[in-house]
Nucleic acid binder design. Structure first.
Lengths: 323, 323
DNA sequence: GCGTTAATTCTCAATTTGAGCATAATAAGA
DNA sequence: TCTTATTATGCTCAAATTGAGAATTAACGC
């Protein structure tokens, strides 16, 4: 008789409040443990589709109705947070959901957590973050030197350069998962020591960034990478914005997700030339300066062009564009 | 006691021979039934990772060792080819694999099937294919008119326009899955009538294109869409080519996958300016005209630029010239 | 009124596309 | 051998897009 098989449905539910991207978390069963993403097992009898199962669990755990939902990836490594207490083999089907910022229903313990508290090396809006310069790069350099032989050291150095950028290769904002996996392999995130049954003893390394339960930080990394990539060719940002918004708010929302600052005038040019938005004539006066016009998303673009996205007019430093 | 849950691992293994993309199929259990993609159930005890399980099944059914493998999507709709004979709920984790054209081991029945025999509306290299103009568009128009009310008809028309292109919206080569799903919903592919237990009686509509077993045509559509999208920003084509190749062969391989003809000189400019290839100095003389230089993939680009792909210099709309 | 803060418009050069013409090198056939 | 067909490869040129930043406008607080 073969081992039992189960499937979990996991949701990275993302919103942007102000200039910070956030992800919805629920408290883990025991206190003191890291928070988790909303998740629950697929019920083969009740859930007609995977996505409906996911929506049901999210509704139950957070009271939230999801609008935009997209499947990300199915994880199933046996040695990586993939068996439950009963010893069954458990797969995780991960989803990305986008919602507008809103009040959370009280009482269930769900809370918004900052995405960049969990993945602090991904926010380059103020330039390369301290944690990257002071901790990650030095420790990755050590990891590279610890390679068994020259070939391995060279291979490790190559991976570090391409995932975290170097003089020759720039920062690719979409490689979020690659970076997390490299940090995991190099033992710089808490999940790495947690997953090793043979702990090296002593106080466990706290690692960089706030961990999440199970493999949920990996799921969040997958979600952020996918979101960053898709922004460029699908009008996903508007799932995160209210009906009307100023162009600066739109820009801040994109910047928050992509983790870099953009050139303001050119960003506007792209958005307007792409006919993604239309002015409402009304003004938002709480800007602190000249009032800004309120715009709304032109849903018609979906019927006009095959791949409408916001494009990323980079600033002088970051040269990580595609096509 | 809840219904049992199983997980199948399915592989769309793609190669390009000459100017035709092909997918590896295995004969279905009973004769007369459509061929299937290689697949097998995940064994929770034996398969350490999903991908290793997939490789094992492919090896067993086709004798082939896979190199490039990428997870596509996990399907699990209850009403769509997702329960087995024993009535268990079955999920399908689908993968895309790329291989170089090669001789198949005899005897196991595995065979290369033309991708565009299965998805004939996707090949626009000779302009809009006949099946699209003569069958699909008229029947989709009928389906649009059959909508219950004005709102539904407008919504259907919008979907048709955006997925299959119209005057206002062009053809988006990446929307392969959207197109297949629309054809399924409109009842133009054989799978649609197969999945309806309440058949309308009479001779079943054969539908457009060669069907595959289970949901495998859907998986192939997912694979082709993903592949088309990814070509633009990852050097995947080279997984399908031998060590050295002429630039025309490179172009033909890309064209075969994307399903459109490209502007030759500009294609070369993009490839060379992107420093994706380097000349070998050797010449290929079996070209039929002036001998072409043999090039090889510059693996170093992987360490130089974040998103090296081949780009797609299109031809003027609608035209399809000989190259 | 004056400085501050943003919004909004414009410029301008550098690059990148889209399209096509011209020339070079081979094989097959007259 | 000379011509023609066929493909490779190089080059040009205008149009469009991008990257960067200056200039102008419209509020607010004092």
């Amino acid at each position: 008789m073969s081992r039992e098989l189960r499937v979990g449905l996991h949701a990275a539910i993302v919103a942007v409040t102000g200039e910070q991207p956030r992800v919805l978390t629920v408290p883990d069963l025991a206190a003191n443990l890291p928070a988790a993403l909303p998740f629950g097992p697929l019920d083969p009898d009740q859930h007609r589709t995977l996505e409906l199962g996911l929506r049901a669990w999210v509704q139950e755990q957070t009271g939230m109705e999801l609008a935009y939902v997209e499947q990300l990836y199915t994880f199933g490594d046996r040695d990586r947070a993939s068996s439950d207490a009963a010893g069954a083999r458990v797969l995780a089907v991960a989803y990305l959901a986008l919602v507008r910022e809103r009040q959370l229903a009280e009482g269930r313990g769900a809370a918004w957590e900052s995405v960049y508290a969990v993945l602090p090396w991904e926010d380059r809006r103020q330039g390369e973050p301290d944690v990257l310069r002071d901790q990650i790069r030095p420790r990755l350099a050590t990891w590279v030197r610890a390679g068994a032989d020259t070939a391995m050291r060279r291979s490790r150095r190559g991976r570090v350069d391409i995932t975290f950028g170097s003089e020759s290769a720039g920062w690719d904002s979409e490689r979020v998962l690659d970076r997390f996996e490299l940090l995991y392999e190099a033992g710089l995130v808490a999940e790495a020591s947690r997953d090793q049954s043979r702990s090296t003893g002593g106080t466990p390394d706290p690692g960089v960034g706030e961990p999440l339960a199970l493999d949920h930080r990996r799921i969040l990394a997958t979600a952020l990478g996918r979101l960053r990539g898709k922004l460029k060719y699908r009008p996903l940002v508007f799932e995160l914005l209210p009906e009307t918004f100023t162009l600066l708010r739109l820009q801040h929302t994109v910047e928050a997700l992509v983790g870099v600052r953009l050139h303001k005038q050119n960003f506007r040019r792209l958005v307007e030339r792409g006919r993604l938005v239309e002015g409402t004539g009304r003004l938002e006066s709480a800007t602190g300066g000249r009032p800004a016009e309120l715009f709304r998303f032109r849903r018609d673009v979906l019927h006009e062009r095959p791949a409408p996205g916001v494009g990323l007019p980079g600033l002088p430093h970051g040269r990580s564009r595609r096509v």
